[in-house]
Computed example of a mutant assay.
Amino acid sequence: MYKRREREIEAMRELIISAAKEIIAKEGFDNLSIRKIANKIEYSPAIIYHYFKDKDEIMNQVMRNGYMRIISAITKSADEDLKPSDKLKRITRDYIEEALSMPDEFLAAQLNQSPYALKHTSSLYRGASKEKPALTALCKCLKEIYTNLDDEQIELKSQMIVVSTFGLIVKLVIEKDLDEEQRQRLIETFIEEVVCKI
Protein backbone atom coordinates (compact mmCIF):
# COMPACT_ATOMS: atom_id res chain seq x y z
CA MET A 1 0.00 0.00 0.00
CA TYR A 2 2.80 2.43 0.96
CA LYS A 3 4.79 1.72 -2.22
CA ARG A 4 1.70 2.24 -4.36
CA ARG A 5 1.13 5.64 -2.71
CA GLU A 6 4.77 6.58 -3.37
CA ARG A 7 4.35 5.63 -7.04
CA GLU A 8 1.17 7.72 -7.26
CA ILE A 9 2.94 10.72 -5.73
CA GLU A 10 5.88 10.33 -8.11
CA ALA A 11 3.54 9.94 -11.10
CA MET A 12 1.70 13.14 -10.17
CA ARG A 13 4.95 15.05 -9.66
CA GLU A 14 6.12 13.86 -13.10
CA LEU A 15 2.81 14.95 -14.66
CA ILE A 16 3.22 18.42 -13.15
CA ILE A 17 6.86 18.69 -14.27
CA SER A 18 5.98 17.51 -17.77
CA ALA A 19 3.23 20.12 -18.06
CA ALA A 20 5.61 22.80 -16.77
CA LYS A 21 8.23 21.81 -19.39
CA GLU A 22 5.67 22.14 -22.18
CA ILE A 23 4.58 25.58 -20.98
CA ILE A 24 8.18 26.74 -20.59
CA ALA A 25 9.09 25.47 -24.06
CA LYS A 26 6.18 27.38 -25.64
CA GLU A 27 5.99 30.50 -23.49
CA GLY A 28 9.26 30.75 -21.54
CA PHE A 29 10.00 30.60 -17.82
CA ASP A 30 8.53 34.02 -17.12
CA ASN A 31 5.09 32.92 -18.27
CA LEU A 32 4.92 29.75 -16.21
CA SER A 33 2.25 29.81 -13.51
CA ILE A 34 0.60 27.33 -11.18
CA ARG A 35 -2.76 28.13 -12.80
CA LYS A 36 -1.42 27.32 -16.31
CA ILE A 37 0.01 24.03 -15.05
CA ALA A 38 -3.29 23.20 -13.34
CA ASN A 39 -5.26 23.96 -16.51
CA LYS A 40 -2.91 21.82 -18.58
CA ILE A 41 -3.24 18.76 -16.33
CA GLU A 42 -6.93 19.46 -15.59
CA TYR A 43 -6.60 19.71 -11.81
CA SER A 44 -7.12 22.58 -9.42
CA PRO A 45 -4.13 24.75 -8.45
CA ALA A 46 -4.52 23.54 -4.85
CA ILE A 47 -3.58 20.00 -5.93
CA ILE A 48 -0.26 21.24 -7.32
CA TYR A 49 0.61 22.82 -3.98
CA HIS A 50 0.11 19.41 -2.42
CA TYR A 51 3.09 18.13 -4.47
CA PHE A 52 5.27 21.24 -4.76
CA LYS A 53 5.82 24.12 -2.36
CA ASP A 54 5.54 26.78 -5.07
CA LYS A 55 6.30 27.67 -8.68
CA ASP A 56 9.97 28.21 -7.84
CA GLU A 57 10.33 24.61 -6.71
CA ILE A 58 8.77 23.42 -9.97
CA MET A 59 11.07 25.64 -12.04
CA ASN A 60 14.12 24.44 -10.14
CA GLN A 61 13.09 20.82 -10.72
CA VAL A 62 12.63 21.42 -14.46
CA MET A 63 16.05 23.07 -14.67
CA ARG A 64 17.67 20.37 -12.57
CA ASN A 65 16.23 17.57 -14.72
CA GLY A 66 17.55 19.12 -17.95
CA TYR A 67 20.91 19.98 -16.45
CA MET A 68 21.30 16.47 -15.01
CA ARG A 69 20.70 14.94 -18.44
CA ILE A 70 23.50 17.04 -19.89
CA ILE A 71 25.85 16.39 -16.96
CA SER A 72 25.18 12.67 -17.21
CA ALA A 73 26.06 12.65 -20.94
CA ILE A 74 29.23 14.68 -20.40
CA THR A 75 30.55 12.86 -17.33
CA LYS A 76 29.96 9.50 -18.98
CA SER A 77 32.18 10.62 -21.85
CA ALA A 78 34.73 12.21 -19.52
CA ASP A 79 35.15 8.91 -17.67
CA GLU A 80 35.86 6.87 -20.81
CA ASP A 81 39.38 5.64 -21.37
CA LEU A 82 40.22 7.74 -24.43
CA LYS A 83 43.17 9.91 -25.31
CA PRO A 84 42.46 13.48 -24.17
CA SER A 85 41.78 14.96 -27.63
CA ASP A 86 39.28 12.17 -28.42
CA LYS A 87 37.68 12.67 -25.02
CA LEU A 88 37.24 16.39 -25.76
CA LYS A 89 35.56 15.55 -29.05
CA ARG A 90 33.27 13.02 -27.37
CA ILE A 91 32.31 15.40 -24.55
CA THR A 92 31.46 18.13 -27.04
CA ARG A 93 29.47 15.83 -29.30
CA ASP A 94 27.52 14.36 -26.36
CA TYR A 95 26.71 17.85 -25.07
CA ILE A 96 25.44 18.93 -28.49
CA GLU A 97 23.40 15.78 -29.03
CA GLU A 98 21.83 15.90 -25.57
CA ALA A 99 20.91 19.57 -26.00
CA LEU A 100 19.41 18.83 -29.43
CA SER A 101 17.35 16.00 -27.95
CA MET A 102 15.43 18.62 -25.89
CA PRO A 103 15.66 21.74 -28.07
CA ASP A 104 12.74 23.76 -26.71
CA GLU A 105 13.59 23.08 -23.10
CA PHE A 106 17.28 23.77 -23.72
CA LEU A 107 16.69 27.12 -25.43
CA ALA A 108 14.04 28.21 -22.93
CA ALA A 109 16.49 27.59 -20.11
CA GLN A 110 19.62 28.98 -21.75
CA LEU A 111 18.01 32.16 -23.03
CA ASN A 112 16.19 32.94 -19.79
CA GLN A 113 17.52 35.67 -17.52
CA SER A 114 15.48 34.81 -14.43
CA PRO A 115 17.46 34.01 -11.27
CA TYR A 116 16.04 30.45 -11.34
CA ALA A 117 17.41 29.76 -14.79
CA LEU A 118 20.71 31.58 -14.26
CA LYS A 119 21.36 29.54 -11.13
CA HIS A 120 21.69 26.50 -13.40
CA THR A 121 22.91 27.97 -16.69
CA SER A 122 25.51 30.59 -15.75
CA SER A 123 29.01 29.43 -16.62
CA LEU A 124 31.03 32.48 -17.63
CA TYR A 125 31.92 33.87 -14.21
CA ARG A 126 35.38 33.38 -12.72
CA GLY A 127 35.46 30.16 -10.71
CA ALA A 128 32.52 28.55 -12.52
CA SER A 129 34.62 25.48 -13.28
CA LYS A 130 34.76 24.68 -9.57
CA GLU A 131 30.97 24.89 -9.17
CA LYS A 132 29.50 23.56 -12.43
CA PRO A 133 29.98 19.80 -12.93
CA ALA A 134 29.81 19.99 -16.74
CA LEU A 135 32.45 22.71 -16.82
CA THR A 136 34.55 20.79 -14.30
CA ALA A 137 34.56 17.74 -16.59
CA LEU A 138 35.51 19.88 -19.57
CA CYS A 139 38.33 21.60 -17.65
CA LYS A 140 39.67 18.26 -16.48
CA CYS A 141 39.86 17.10 -20.07
CA LEU A 142 41.51 20.34 -21.22
CA LYS A 143 44.13 20.05 -18.46
CA GLU A 144 45.19 16.73 -19.96
CA ILE A 145 45.61 18.39 -23.36
CA TYR A 146 47.14 21.73 -22.33
CA THR A 147 49.55 20.74 -19.57
CA ASN A 148 51.41 24.06 -19.78
CA LEU A 149 48.34 26.24 -18.95
CA ASP A 150 47.25 27.29 -15.47
CA ASP A 151 43.75 26.75 -14.06
CA GLU A 152 42.54 30.21 -15.00
CA GLN A 153 43.60 29.79 -18.64
CA ILE A 154 41.98 26.34 -18.74
CA GLU A 155 38.75 27.76 -17.35
CA LEU A 156 38.72 30.52 -19.99
CA LYS A 157 39.29 27.96 -22.77
CA SER A 158 36.44 25.82 -21.43
CA GLN A 159 34.15 28.85 -21.24
CA MET A 160 34.92 29.73 -24.86
CA ILE A 161 34.09 26.16 -25.87
CA VAL A 162 30.77 26.40 -24.00
CA VAL A 163 29.89 29.74 -25.63
CA SER A 164 30.77 28.67 -29.16
CA THR A 165 29.02 25.31 -28.73
CA PHE A 166 25.92 27.10 -27.53
CA GLY A 167 25.97 29.21 -30.70
CA LEU A 168 26.05 26.12 -32.90
CA ILE A 169 23.24 24.48 -30.92
CA VAL A 170 21.05 27.57 -31.26
CA LYS A 171 21.53 27.65 -35.04
CA LEU A 172 20.88 23.90 -35.37
CA VAL A 173 17.65 24.27 -33.38
CA ILE A 174 16.47 27.33 -35.31
CA GLU A 175 17.32 25.94 -38.75
CA LYS A 176 15.12 22.88 -38.34
CA ASP A 177 15.05 21.98 -42.04
CA LEU A 178 18.66 20.76 -42.20
CA ASP A 179 19.01 17.18 -43.30
CA GLU A 180 20.79 14.80 -40.93
CA GLU A 181 23.88 14.48 -43.11
CA GLN A 182 24.44 18.25 -43.15
CA ARG A 183 23.73 18.46 -39.43
CA GLN A 184 26.39 15.85 -38.70
CA ARG A 185 28.88 17.53 -41.06
CA LEU A 186 28.40 20.83 -39.23
CA ILE A 187 28.89 19.20 -35.83
CA GLU A 188 32.01 17.33 -36.95
CA THR A 189 33.55 20.39 -38.59
CA PHE A 190 32.74 22.53 -35.56
CA ILE A 191 34.43 20.03 -33.23
CA GLU A 192 37.54 19.71 -35.43
CA GLU A 193 37.93 23.33 -36.51
CA VAL A 194 36.66 25.24 -33.48
CA VAL A 195 36.69 23.16 -30.30
CA CYS A 196 39.97 21.37 -30.94
CA LYS A 197 41.72 24.61 -31.91
CA ILE A 198 40.55 26.88 -29.09
Rank of each mutant, 00 (worst) to 15 (best):
Glu97His: 10
Ile17Thr: 04
Arg13Asp: 04
Ser72Pro: 02
Leu88Tyr: 01
Ile174Cys: 04
Ile187Met: 02
Ile161His: 03
Leu178Ser: 01
Ile174Lys: 12
Arg183Lys: 06
Lys176Pro: 05
Asp150Lys: 02
Lys55Asp: 01
His120Val: 08
Tyr49Ser: 08
Lys171Pro: 11
Tyr43Val: 10
Thr189Ser: 14
Gln113Asp: 15
Ile47Glu: 14
Asn31Ala: 07
Arg7Glu: 13
Phe190Lys: 00
Glu144Tyr: 00
Leu100His: 07
Lys89Cys: 02
Ile74Gln: 08
Gln184Trp: 06
Ala73Phe: 03
Asn148Leu: 15
Leu15Ile: 04
Phe106Thr: 14
Pro133Glu: 02
Lys140Cys: 08
Asn65His: 06
Glu27Pro: 02
Leu15Trp: 09
Asp54Thr: 01
Asp79Pro: 07
Ile74Met: 02
Ile24Lys: 01
Leu156Phe: 15
Pro133Leu: 00
Arg4Phe: 12
Leu178Ala: 05
Asn65Thr: 10
Phe106Lys: 11
Ile174Met: 12
Glu180Gln: 11
Cys196Ser: 13
Lys53Glu: 05
Tyr67Pro: 09
Leu149Glu: 03
Lys130Pro: 07
Arg4Pro: 15
Ser77Trp: 07
Leu135Asp: 02
Leu186Cys: 09
Ile58Val: 01
Lys21Pro: 03
Ser129Met: 05
Arg4Gln: 15
Leu111Phe: 11
Glu14Cys: 10
Leu135Gln: 10
Glu181Phe: 11
Ile198His: 00
Glu180Cys: 03
Leu107Met: 04
Leu15Asn: 09
Ile96Pro: 00
Leu118Lys: 14
Asp179Gly: 05
Met160Glu: 08
Ile41Met: 09
Arg69Leu: 13
Lys157Val: 01
Glu98Leu: 00
Thr136Val: 13
Met63Asn: 13
Ala99Thr: 01
Glu192Asp: 12
Lys36His: 09
Ile161Cys: 00
Met63Gln: 09
Ile96Ser: 03
Ser164Pro: 04
Asn60Ser: 14
Pro133Val: 05
Arg64Phe: 14
Lys197Ile: 10
Val194Ser: 03
Arg64Thr: 13
Met1His: 13
Tyr51Asn: 00
Glu97Arg: 12
Asp179Ala: 07
Asp81Cys: 06
Leu15Met: 06
Glu10Thr: 11
Ile41His: 02
Ile187Asp: 01
Gln159Cys: 00
Val173Trp: 06
Phe190Gln: 05
Thr75Cys: 11
Asn148His: 15
Ile48Cys: 06
Ala137Glu: 05
Lys119Trp: 05
Asp56Val: 12
Arg7Ala: 09
Tyr51Ser: 01
Cys141Met: 03
Lys40Leu: 09
Glu181Trp: 01
Asp151Gln: 02
Lys36Tyr: 07
Cys139Tyr: 07
Ala73Tyr: 04
Ile198Lys: 04
Ala20Gln: 01
Asn60Thr: 13
